[in-house]
């Protein structure tokens, strides 16, 4: 699988006779321990440096929470993991981001295929202005991962996976903007999952949601491991404690401390981390 995924992000999937269901089974059977890591990664825009020599590994099938005060570089770091900063003016990086032994910033890597393997969900729900069904399968259609006749079944199965299907079964052709904020975010998760990513990046996915919706999204995120490797940026330390197995604390563009979530968030080694997690800074 390592070989096939590495080949996937460099040359693109075999689009001719792609078996959607088989792809998901293959992904689930992958046994990589650290599919994604950064090595001495420095990132900046024009003359300013945002992140300084970050080396961090994301163990397979776990949730890693990135925490830290506003402006410390967490979201920039997250967006660097699937090359979402590529089009931002003045963006530069040093060091590497390695996905399955391939540096994703190598010239041979196709960022479009990379983003299929490293999916992303954003702070605010951002469904497309199309029907609920079309939203779920938009990525599947873009990457030609399934035949047209199978799209409805895929949409239904993804919506069931995120626990949204029962609520909207008779509204598949409706506008997604009729859904509540929490339902829209679940829809965005279904859309991201539909293309079969190996890693999922979540940028404060519950920041704009109420506590009930937050709970639904957290339950889903927890249920996605160990099938997926998840990296989540959150300002909510309680959330990080609830769902993450690993945590990393960023401060002023530096990675101060990382390790098991219980250790980093409850009994940190560094004073700065302790100040943050105990609410003396933030």
């Amino acid at each position: 699988m390592t070989q096939s995924l590495a080949s996937d992000i460099t040359t693109g999937p075999n689009q001719g006779d792609f078996d959607y269901s088989q792809k998901r089974i293959d992904d689930a059977s992958s046994q990589l321990q650290v599919p994604l890591k950064t090595i001495d990664l420095s990132v900046g825009f024009s003359h300013s440096t945002i992140l300084n020599e970050i080396s961090l590994s994301f163990p397979k099938g776990t949730i890693t929470a990135l925490v830290g005060p506003t402006g410390c570089g967490k979201s920039t770091f997250l967006r660097t993991l699937n090359r979402m900063n590529d089009h931002v003016r003045g963006f530069w990086h040093k060091g590497s981001v390695v996905l399955d032994d391939v540096n994703i910033y190598d010239k041979s890597v196709d960022p479009l295929v990379l983003r299929r393997n490293v999916g992303m969900v954003f702070q605010r729900p951002n469904p497309f202005p199309m029907s609920i069904k079309d939203n779920v399968v938009s990525g599947v259609k873009a990457h030609k991962l399934a035949k047209r006749k199978d799209l409805l079944a895929i949409a239904e199965s993804q919506l069931k996976e995120v626990g949204l299907y029962d609520a909207i079964a008779d509204r598949m052709d409706d506008s997604p903007f009729r859904l509540s904020g929490g339902q829209q975010q679940l829809l965005c998760l279904a859309r991201a999952l539909a293309v079969g990513p190996e890693v999922l990046l979540l940028d404060e996915p519950t920041a704009s949601l109420d506590p009930v919706s937050t709970s639904s999204v957290e339950s889903l995120i927890s249920a996605l491991v160990p099938k997926l490797t998840i990296v989540i940026v959150t300002h909510n330390l309680a959330q990080a404690r609830r769902i993450a197995q690993h945590a990393a604390f960023f401060f002023n563009g530096e990675l101060v401390e990382h390790g098991l979530a219980a250790q980093v968030l409850e009994d940190p080694e560094h004073e700065t981390t302790a100040q943050f997690v105990t609410g003396r800074m933030g």
């Binding site: 699937n82 979402m84 089009h87 960022p111 479009l112 295929v113 990379l114 983003r115 299929r116 999916g119 992303m120 969900v121 954003f122 605010r124 951002n126 469904p127 497309f128 202005p129 199309m130 938009s138 990525g139 873009a142 990457h143 965005c188 859309r191 991201a192 293309v195």
Partner: peptide
């Protein structure tokens, strides 16, 4: 947000334009 969602899914520039 529409563009980011499309780029995050790995859509090409034309697909992003057309769909989002």
């Amino acid at each position: 947000a529409f563009r980011e969602a499309a780029e995050g899914l790995g859509m090409t520039r034309w697909q992003t334009l057309r769909r989002a």
